[in-house]
C-alpha cells in the first residue's frame, strides 16, 4: 500500500476504509474509496455493474490487495490478520460455485469445518428450513436460487459480527428475497453489522439505514437512505389558473421539465434548491400543487444521467 494516513482504527466503526485504490493493468477499478460503517448499521452499497462494488468488498476481505489506502474491519487490518477478520465476518460473494459432487449438506459441513466446526448444526438446519432448502439435494441438481440459499446460510451459520454480502438476493424469487431480507433484519437486531452491495434499489431502500453510491470506482454519495430519498430529488405537478411562461421554472438551477400539458400544467423535478422553486411558484398563479417522493431507484438513476 502506498498511502497509510489512518494509523489507528476508530473503535466506533465496524468498517473503515480510507483511500482504497486498485487497478487491473490500465483499468482503475477503485479510485480512492473512503467508507465508514458504524457498528450495528445496515449499510447499502449501490452501483451499476463494473462500478467497483465487488472489488471494494474483496479488498476489505483481503481477497485482493489494494494498491493504496488502508482498511479496518472490526478494528482489525485484514491484511495483517485476515484469519481473525474472517472468523468474525460472514461473506457472500456475488458469484458462487460449489463442489457439484457434494450435497447441500456436504457443502455446508465443509464450510462449517473450515470454520473449525464452530457452527451450530441445528441452527444451520433451522436456517435451511426458513429458506426452504432441502439439504439432501446434490448441488448439481440445485437451481441458481437454491445455490444462493446455500451461500446465504454459509454466511450466517456462525452468527458473525459483520456481514459482507455481495448482492445477497441475486437469483432468488421475490418471496425468498423477502425472507432473506427479514433474516438480515433479524441478525441486525441482534447486533450484526451488515454491509451489502446491490443494484436492486427497492431492497436497499427497505433495509439499509445508510447508503453509499459508487460510480467508476469513486464514492459519489454517502447518506442516510431516508434523507437521500427526500433530499436529493423532488418532483412537482403544478396546475396554474392561467397560461404562464414556463421558462420561469425551467431556467431554475437543477430543474428539468418532465412533461407539459399546454401552458397551464407542468410536471418537473429538481435536484437543486427547493426553496427557490417554492419562491418562484409563489409568484405564479398556482391552482393546484402535488409533490412526489421519487424512489431510491429514480434518485440513483439521476447520478448516472
Amino acid at each position: 500500500m502506498k498511502t497509510n494516513k489512518m494509523t489507528k482504527p476508530n473503535p466506533d466503526l465496524a468498517i473503515q476504509a480510507q483511500g482504497l485504490t486498485k487497478s487491473y493493468g490500465k483499468i482503475q477499478a477503485l479510485e480512492g474509496i473512503d467508507l465508514e460503517v458504524k457498528y450495528g448499521e445496515i449499510f447499502g452499497f449501490l452501483g451499476p455493474n463494473g462500478a467497483g462494488k465487488t472489488t471494494t468488498i474483496r479488498c476489505l476481505l483481503d481477497m485482493i490487495r489494494p494498491d493504496g489506502g488502508i482498511a479496518y474491519l472490526l478494528g482489525i487490518n485484514p491484511q495483517e490478520n485476515p484469519v481473525k477478520v474472517q472468523t468474525m465476518t460472514g461473506y457472500l460473494p456475488g458469484e458462487m460455485q460449489f463442489y457439484d459432487n457434494l450435497t447441500a449438506e456436504g457443502q455446508l459441513r465443509f464450510f462449517s469445518d473450515m470454520r473449525n466446526g464452530r457452527s451450530d448444526w441445528s441452527y444451520v438446519c433451522n436456517l435451511a428450513d426458513q429458506l426452504d432448502l432441502d439439504l439432501k439435494q446434490p448441488i448439481k441438481n440445485l437451481s441458481k436460487g437454491n445455490k444462493q440459499k446455500i451461500g446465504v446460510i454459509q454466511a450466517l451459520m456462525h452468527k458473525p459480527d459483520l456481514l459482507l454480502l455481495d448482492e445477497p438476493t441475486s437469483g432468488l424469487d421475490p418471496l425468498m428475497q423477502q425472507k432473506v431480507l427479514v433474516l438480515l433484519r433479524e441478525f441486525n437486531r441482534q447486533g450484526t453489522t451488515i454491509f451489502f452491495s446491490s443494484h436492486v434499489m427497492s431492497e436497499v431502500e427497505n433495509v439499509a439505514q445508510r447508503v453509499a453510491i459508487i460510480r467508476a470506482g469513486k464514492i459519489i454519495e454517502i447518506a442516510e437512505t431516508e434523507s437521500l430519498t427526500h433530499r436529493t430529488l423532488n418532483r412537482f405537478i403544478v396546475r396554474f389558473k392561467q397560461k404562464i411562461d414556463i421558462s420561469q421554472i425551467s431556467r431554475l438551477e437543477g430543474v428539468s421539465i418532465l412533461s407539459q400539458n399546454g401552458s397551464d400544467q407542468i410536471k418537473f423535478q429538481t435536484t437543486g434548491d427547493i426553496q427557490k422553486v417554492i419562491q418562484t411558484l409563489g409568484t405564479l398563479p398556482v391552482q393546484d400543487l402535488e409533490t412526489e417522493h421519487p424512489s431510491l431507484e429514480e434518485i440513483f438513476l439521476t447520478y448516472y444521467q
Partner: peptide, 15 residues
C-alpha cells in the same frame, strides 16, 4: 478458475 476459491479463502483458514 472455477470460482470456488474466493468463498473458501473467505473462511478463517489463512492462505
Amino acid at each position: 478458475e472455477r470460482g470456488r476459491l474466493d468463498l473458501i479463502i473467505a473462511h478463517p483458514v489463512g492462505r
